[in-house]
Design a binder for these strands. Sequence first.
DNA 1: TTGCTCCTCACGTCACGTGAGGTGGC
DNA 2: TTGCTCCTCACGTCACGTGAGGTGGC
Lengths: 254, 254
Amino acid sequence: MAAEKPGHEPNLRIGELAELAATTTRAIRYYHSIGLLDEPTRDASGYRRYGAEDLIRLVRIRRLRSLEMPLEQIAAHLSQREGEPRDLQASLRELAKEVDEQIIALQALKERLLHIAASTLALPVDTWRSTLRAQGVLGEHAALPDGEHEAVNLLDALHPDGVEGVITQSSGLLGNPELVRDLKPLLLRFRELPDDEAAVEVLASEIAALLPTPEQAASPVDIETMDRLLGDRLTPAQRRFLRRLRGLLEKRRP
Amino acid sequence: MAAEKPGHEPNLRIGELAELAATTTRAIRYYHSIGLLDEPTRDASGYRRYGAEDLIRLVRIRRLRSLEMPLEQIAAHLSQREGEPRDLQASLRELAKEVDEQIIALQALKERLLHIAASTLALPVDTWRSTLRAQGVLGEHAALPDGEHEAVNLLDALHPDGVEGVITQSSGLLGNPELVRDLKPLLLRFRELPDDEAAVEVLASEIAALLPTPEQAASPVDIETMDRLLGDRLTPAQRRFLRRLRGLLEKRRP
DNA sequence: TTGCTCCTCACGTCACGTGAGGTGGC
DNA sequence: TTGCTCCTCACGTCACGTGAGGTGGC
């Protein structure tokens, strides 16, 4: 009777091992590369040969991975002697907490997405134009002046909440019909401002007199930055005017 | 009067641009590298100089990124002419749907985590031993035979639901007190099985006669694989027995 | 001989973060 | 002169997926 050689320990090839553990050969080789799973012995032709111990460890790795535990944590739990389920329990609770935080963040994100998708998604210029029209600052059929197209986009970019934020922020101004009425001719003068020191000074003080003292020190819309970025769209006189106006408004702060 | 040179277009440096858009210089350079944001002109010393257009586009990129839109999608939306908010709306809804799927998956994961954390987290051997004791298959103070330690770990690894799955699956057997009583002496004979063809055959048919015909064709616990992996823990007679038993059980299938 | 499995590089993923080593600007 | 900003590589992230090019096993 020929001696029946028992299937001596390591007799699974990597593909079989992967299938038994419901994973891929690549994952297994990766676990070898990071030292999470020991390299097994090789057979005559260089193939890896795995035994029961390998399968047991691999399945444990995969079970913890299916709970989204990072490989480093898995390594820590599997290397430490088996008697410490406390630690594992704590880790699992910690993971659950993290998952919970992710859920909350994703729920908020989902709300934002649906909210924005449900909004008009209008271009900043369109929103701006219709607001000006509604306030009577712009005539029903008048177009925005050429240079203001980009200015509106800039306003949109500079305010954390976009043009809508700007509108909300300035609704105190625009909501006051008398102010709007008084401001209107002054804005027209701004557009035509001559390169004349006296004219700049007069317009600045007239507008400053109308504007309320801002409640918050630093407005989210940075007038200085707008000035720099629109530099070549404004005449030198207009730029001097903006700086002057800013100076006047600053002086009023306590 | 010296000609007042207006801050001609590109006058922001990368750091200022990053701050205005609430992002990092590295992100901006990355957007250049993938062609999402055009490289601006350079000043005399090689520094990038940005203008209003760049800020506007960067802020739009960042707003869409804050909604977790992938850069590739952002590029598609920003490159196409502005008149198509339909597309953007559809993309946002699509993103919301994906986020929703993630939320559902994470909720399930969280349940699994908490469920497992709340369980005993006992070692497979411990679970197995106490089940055997509860069923009277193992005496109150008896230990598991040496070779079975690994066998239990293997059972655990081979079943999708671990030892608990094995126990549930076989509870039909173990829940039947008469069967357990009859099986008990046969299991003892298995442990002591002599290398004798007749003994193997007799034990196989006796046990096969007791076992019910399995309802499902392929059991999740692959007896063949267990045999291969435990090869050197079983005597040749025991391995022959397992193959024989398997043959007998297979023959009963329709 | 053919198709299957295995082997070892090595690049790709996604959106940047983080030095390293050097230079310009105020 | 000093500290700040900028520059360009280039590696690292996390857990693998995906060829590329070649060889062993049945």
